[in-house]
Amino acid sequence: MSDRKQDKKPNRREFIQKGMRLTLGASLAGVAGFAALKVSADDYVWQLDPFKCVYCGRCADYCVVTPSAVKCVHAYELCGYCDLCGGYLKPDANARSTAAENQLCPTAAIKRKFVEDPYFEYEIDEDLCIGCAKCVEGCTSFGNGSLHLQVRHDLCVNCNECSIARVCPADAFERVPASSPYKIKGDFSQETESSNPA
């Protein structure tokens, strides 16, 4: 009978091991709970609504990331592929050429490629883009608005309170679901929703 009592009585080593397992389990549960909270907090990201944007240039100046996490993107299906592109050429350009003095973009982030007479294709080098919106303003003023700004989520740090959103005069920055983080022009269902708010 005394042997049975000794079998049931845990020794010190087993007691410490069980205690460590319980502590580890509780720690892992806490980390998992914290991770679950982080995932739910990250379900929304900042994005700029291109249908509200007024091309003020504050995206380049106020983003905490340098250069800005806001970049110009091109909705190719809306583009006219014009020789005289208002987003590429300055309004008072001397010629319709790729010379620096004729380009509207201060960092030469827009690349112009000849397709066939009179068509050109315009691509954005996002590494050079600073989010100043000069090309977007030109494209909207003299073209069909195929150039627009978007927050690039591989660059954005998703601040709790976006510093650009605080100073945006058009309230164009908003939290959107991370599952659909971009508001691209050319997606006409979004344009309809933005122009006809419920």
Rank of each mutant, 00 (worst) to 15 (best):
G87E: 13
F114W: 12
A172D: 04
P118K: 05
G131D: 11
A95G: 07
K113C: 05
V157C: 03
L84C: 12
A108F: 13
A109S: 15
C135K: 04
G145S: 06
A95T: 10
T107N: 14
D117K: 06
A165T: 05
C135W: 00
T107M: 11
A165F: 08
D127I: 00
G86Y: 09
C159Q: 02
L89A: 06
E101Y: 03
L147C: 00
P118L: 02
D154G: 11
L149M: 13
L84A: 13
D125A: 04
G87F: 04
N158L: 07
F120K: 09
Q150D: 07
A133Y: 03
A99Q: 08
G138A: 06
C132G: 03
L149D: 05
G143N: 09
V115D: 12
A172I: 01
E101L: 07
Y88A: 15
F114Y: 10
V157R: 02
K134E: 11
T140D: 15
P169G: 07
P169Y: 06
N102C: 11
E121R: 14
Q103S: 11
S146R: 03
C159S: 01
D154K: 12
P106C: 12
N94P: 11
E123K: 13
L128K: 14
C159F: 01
D92P: 05
L149K: 00
G87D: 09
H153T: 05
T107Q: 15
P169V: 03
E116K: 14
N158G: 00
G86S: 09
R96G: 03
L84M: 13
T140G: 11
D92R: 06
F114A: 08
C168A: 02
N102G: 04
S146N: 09
A170W: 10
A170I: 04
R112W: 04
V136R: 07
N102D: 13
L155S: 08
P177T: 02
V167R: 00
I164W: 01
S97E: 15
A108H: 14
V167W: 00
F114K: 09
E101P: 08
G87S: 03
K113E: 13
L104T: 01
R152S: 12
S97L: 12
P169L: 08
V157K: 02
L104A: 06
K111S: 00
N94C: 07
S97Y: 08
N102M: 05
